[in-house]
Computed example of a mutant assay.
Amino acid sequence: MSKLKLGLQMWSIHDVFVNQGFEKALQEMSKMGYEGLEFALGGSATLSDRCGYPVDPKELKKMMEAYGVEPLGSHIAFGEFMKNPEVVLQECLDLGLKYAAVGPAFEGDRTPHGDQIEKYKQITEGARVFKENGIQFQVHCAVYGYLHDYKGRPTYQGMIEEAGIDLIQPEFDTAWMICSGNDPIELLKKYRGHVDILHFKDYHPVPYDTEYILVRHNEVCDHHRGCAVGDNGVQDVASIVAAAEECGTKWVLTELWNEENSLENARISAENIKKYL
C-alpha cells in the first residue's frame, strides 16, 4: 500500500467553501476520501477575507480534526504577508499548518533585473520567517514559474536557488509542468526528497500548440471546460504517482479549476488517483 496521502486544494471546491461553509465542504471531502486540505487565499490576507464570513482558525482546526481532515498548508498572498506579516503568519500557526506556499515571484524576464533581485531577497526573508516558526515554505509552480529570470533560470528554480532548498521547496502542478514542456517524472527526480506536496491538475488536449509557454497556457485556459484529474486529460496518472512515491513525496493533492460541477469533479479525481495509492 502506498505511503502517499491524498489531499485537496481549497480552490477545487471554492464555491462550496464560500457558499455553503467549511463544515459542508469538510463533510464532502471526508466522504470522498480526502485526508488533508490546503487552503488558498488568493489575494486575501486571511480566510475570513477570502470567504466573506468570519472564520476562527482555531475553531476550524478543531472542526477539521472531527472530520479527519488534516490542515496541511496554505497558498498565502505574499503581498499581504509583506504588509501584515504577523496576521498572515499567525493564521497559519493557529491552523497548525506544516506548509505555506506562494506563486512565482515575478513574470520571468518581463520583469526588470533589479526588481527580480529585490523579489528574490524578499521571498528569501519571508521563507526564513516561516521556517523559524516551523513552517516549510514552498513555491507553487504555476506556468509563470517556468519563464526565465535574468540568469536564464526558470523563476521557480531561481527562487529555490537564491534561498536554498531547505528554505523553499518546489510545489509542482502537473498541468503546468506538462504545459510548460517539462516531464513531471524528470522534475520529481531532479528534486528528489524535496517535493513534499504534488498537485494533480489536468486539462483536455487543446487544438493549437506553440513553442511559447504563455501562448500554450492561454490556449489551455481558453479551451478549458472542466476536467477532473485523469478524465481523458493530458497525463498518465499512474506513472506520475509511482514516481512521486519513489521520490519521497508525502502528499498528492487534487487541484481543480473554477469548475461549475466542482464536487463531482473532485470525486472523480479522488477515485482516479486512489487507484494508484
Rank of each mutant, 00 (worst) to 15 (best):
Q138I: 01
Y146K: 08
F172P: 05
V139A: 08
K190Y: 01
D173C: 10
Y144R: 15
G134R: 12
N182E: 15
V139W: 02
H140I: 10
Y156I: 05
Q138G: 09
G152H: 07
D173I: 09
I185R: 14
V143P: 10
I160D: 01
V143T: 15
S180T: 01
I185C: 15
D173S: 06
H140Q: 11
N182P: 04
S180R: 02
A142T: 10
H148G: 03
E161H: 02
L147K: 07
A175M: 14
A163F: 06
I160R: 00
R153D: 14
L188H: 02
T155K: 08
G158M: 12
E171A: 08
E171Y: 04
H148F: 09
L147M: 10
Y150I: 11
G158L: 12
Y144G: 13
Y144E: 12
E186Q: 12
G158Y: 05
V195G: 09
D183N: 15
I197K: 04
G134M: 13
E132H: 07
Y150V: 13
D149T: 08
H194V: 03
L187G: 00
K189A: 13
Q138E: 15
L147C: 14
D166G: 00
F137E: 03
S180D: 07
M159S: 08
Q138Y: 03
E161P: 03
P170G: 08
L188W: 07
I168E: 00
K190W: 00
P154G: 10
L167K: 01
E186Y: 01
N133D: 06
L198D: 07
F172A: 12
T174I: 11
L167I: 05
G134W: 09
C179E: 14
L198N: 08
E162P: 01
W176V: 11
Y150C: 15
F172C: 09
Y156G: 11
M177H: 05
M159T: 01
E132F: 07
L147R: 11
M159P: 05
F137H: 11
V139D: 05
E162Y: 03
I178W: 02
T174S: 11
D173M: 13
G181K: 04
H148R: 15
H194S: 05
Q169W: 00
I135S: 08
G164T: 01
D149S: 14
K189Y: 01
C179K: 03
Y146S: 14
G145V: 12
L187C: 04
D196C: 01
V139G: 09
